[in-house]
């Protein structure tokens, strides 16, 4: 074989590698949560702009990771309490989700369109893992994929305790909002 052929072979393998798994990702996904009770005078809301999200369009595998210290709050003191007292970010620096889009084969990722999707998987927060199922919207738009979902998390499920002193302000259920725009992952 000549050298030319080797290169051809090499290219073939790399192309095969890319074609084999189409991965879309972002490192600037938005994840927000709101744990404000109706009676609270101040909004207990945090937002991260640095969530990492990866989607494998072939298998439907979907994974999220967000650094707890990346959540920003209106009040610095809230941020401190969030990290120090509630999610204990030194011990449990990140929260993850590993799961799949359930009806992945029904989605045509090559064509623009909107899909209602169900996502199933394991969420890990505060060192506790739990199976979750949630509905969201997946939008294919010009080679990019937009993911949006809203769901509730019962904080007690993840052993995040709300002391009685602040129970009138901090809700036991946090509303989570996910908003990620994924782009094709190139090695």
């Amino acid at each position: 074989m000549s050298l030319k052929k080797y290169f051809l072979l090499m290219i073939l393998f790399f192309v095969a590698g890319i074609g084999y798994g189409q991965r879309y990702f972002t490192k600037s996904g938005k994840i927000a949560f709101d744990a404000t009770t109706p009676s609270s005078p101040e909004k207990i809301k945090g937002k991260s702009h640095t969530a990492v999200c990866v989607l494998d369009t072939k298998t439907g595998a979907l994974q999220f990771s967000v650094l707890m210290k990346g959540f920003e709050f209106d009040r610095a003191l809230m941020q401190e309490h969030f990290n120090e007292n509630y999610v204990e970010s030194d011990k449990f620096p990140k929260s993850e989700f590993r799961g799949t889009v359930t009806a992945n084969d029904k989605i045509n990722y090559t064509q623009d369109g909107k899909y209602k999707v169900e996502v199933k998987g394991t969420m890990t927060l505060h060192g506790e893992s739990k199976e979750v199922v949630t509905n969201g919207e997946l939008k294919v738009d010009n080679g990019k994929i937009k993911l949006e979902a809203n769901f509730d998390v019962l904080l007690a499920d993840y052993k995040v305790s709300i002391p009685g002193l602040v129970a009138d302000k901090v809700s036991k259920i946090a509303k989570i909002e996910v908003d990620c725009a994924l782009e094709l992952f190139k090695n």
């Binding site: 090499m10 393998f13 095969a16 084999y20 991965r23 490192k27 990866v54 994974q63 993850e96």
Partner: peptide, 20 residues
């Protein structure tokens, strides 16, 4: 090399793949 790169891509841990 080609095989290894393919295997790495096929790995289950997608987050690791993007250097998270």
């Amino acid at each position: 090399c080609g095989l290894v790169s393919n295997n790495a891509m096929a790995q289950d841990d997608l987050l690791k793949m993007v250097g998270e």
